[in-house]
């Protein structure tokens, strides 16, 4: 905000001159960087392939239809596996994320100096590694199969659930907690009466949201041998069996739509 005097009148502008100029300079630099990068990428692109893209796209789609519907009978088992991987992984993540979240939230952590950094480290390391990479590592350690997939999904989800949950804990109304404390309640009673009711809707929302994401993530775990429908997807693409690929994609989309519908219902019921 800048106020200057001009002919005896007070003139108000949002920013003073120097601030305005530095903002323009910022825009200038950002656009320049963008354009330089664009030019570099454009130089490295083989444009012949790109111009060819529509024809290639049409070609693949034409090979995908009609879907080979009888193939669906082969993959039902792995669809069920995929859902189980997502569900069990989410349950595991929630069980581990709840204590982590309480340790990470500034207002409930036992120690801001010692416990909180550990909880935050757990959250960051879990979040920064993609579930496919977790699966890759775990297949090497645990051997291929669903179990590795469940653990991979679980490890990836702890950070997500704990982060959103601890943010919800930090945003609670301290007045309600204070009132429960003032009755002479113990620490754990205060938690159960003052804090838990306040974060329950967030907790339910986070859990079903993560379950929803995990169904999508677990569809690719089969690529690295961690169980689920991904194994058929990679096999069909490798064999150029495009009519099977289209069946798999349709089944995945249907599963995701159903899971989204379920999670919307659950969220609605709890909030």
């Amino acid at each position: 905000m800048a106020v200057s005097t001009k002919d005896g009148l007070k003139v108000w502008q949002r920013r003073d001159r120097n601030k305005q100029l530095s903002i323009w300079a910022g825009y200038f630099v950002a656009i320049t960087i963008f354009m330089v990068c664009w030019q570099y990428m454009s130089g490295k692109t083989i444009w012949m392939f790109v111009w060819d893209a529509p024809r290639q796209g049409v070609d693949i789609v034409s090979r995908m239809v009609p879907p080979k519907w009888e193939y669906a009978n082969v993959i039902w088992g792995t669809v069920w596996d995929t859902i189980n991987i997502a569900t069990l992984g989410t349950i595991m993540a929630i069980i581990l994320a709840v204590p982590t979240a309480f340790c990470a939230a500034r207002n409930t952590t036992p120690s801001v100096r010692f416990v909180r950094p550990i909880a935050l480290f757990i959250i960051v390391s879990s979040r920064s590694i993609n579930s496919l990479i977790w699966a890759l590592i775990l297949v090497a350690i645990l051997g291929p199969g669903m179990f590795a997939g469940v653990i991979a999904i679980g490890l990836r989800s702890i950070g997500f659930c704990a982060k959103l949950l601890y943010e919800a804990i930090e945003e609670i109304d301290p007045g309600q907690v204070e009132a429960v404390e003032a009755t002479g309640a113990s620490g754990i009673q205060t938690l159960a009466y003052g804090i838990v009711p306040q974060i329950l809707p967030a907790f339910a929302g986070i859990s079903v949201f993560r379950w929803d994401i995990n169904i999508r993530e677990s569809t690719v775990l089969g690529y690295v041998g961690a169980g689920g429908i991904g194994i058929h997807l990679s096999g069909s693409i490798d064999n150029l069996a495009w009519t099977q690929v289209s069946v798999i994609l349709i089944v995945i989309i249907a599963t995701v739509v159903i899971s989204e519908w379920v999670s919307a219902k659950v969220r609605h019921a709890i909030i």
């Binding site: 309600q176 009132a179 429960v180 003032a182 009755t183 309640a185 009673q189 003052g194 306040q198 329950l200």
Partner: peptide, 26 residues
Amino acid sequence: MGMIFQEYALVERLTVMENVLSGRLW
């Protein structure tokens, strides 16, 4: 020592009965 608050400080998502009974927590 019973305490009564300006913004009531009831636990919003609990029932009236649960809120009253929370005075017995000790």
